[in-house]
């Protein structure tokens, strides 16, 4: 697996507890549209991603992220910076 694939797999694992409908996950999966998450779930989920990768995803960055692919890219960027 490439680094990105590994990150994707880890993020997908973190999504699982919140993926009540068992939606199939791809780069294009959108959090609000496909997963139908509200802001409370988003907050919990983002905190778990931050802790898993030891990064900070500011609310400013969060506002730009709509899909799983965008999130994985952001995580990759943050890990490479750190």
């Amino acid at each position: 697996m490439t680094d990105r694939e590994e990150t994707f797999a880890k993020v997908a694992q973190l999504i699982a507890p919140f993926n009540k409908k068992g939606i199939a996950l791809t780069d294009a999966t959108s959090f609000a549209g496909d997963l139908e998450w509200d802001s409370l779930i988003v907050m919990d989920f983002v905190a778990s991603v931050e802790d898993e990768f030891d990064i900070l995803i500011t609310m400013n960055m969060q506002a730009e992220i709509e899909t799983l692919g965008q999130l994985v890219d952001a995580v990759e960027d943050l890990r490479n910076e750190g």
Partner: peptide, 16 residues
């Protein structure tokens, strides 16, 4: 707001 993952600021502000 489109399908904002992550709502901008206020948790009270779910996307409309």
């Amino acid at each position: 707001m489109t399908e904002a993952l992550l709502n901008p600021m206020d948790p009270a502000d779910d996307p409309l």
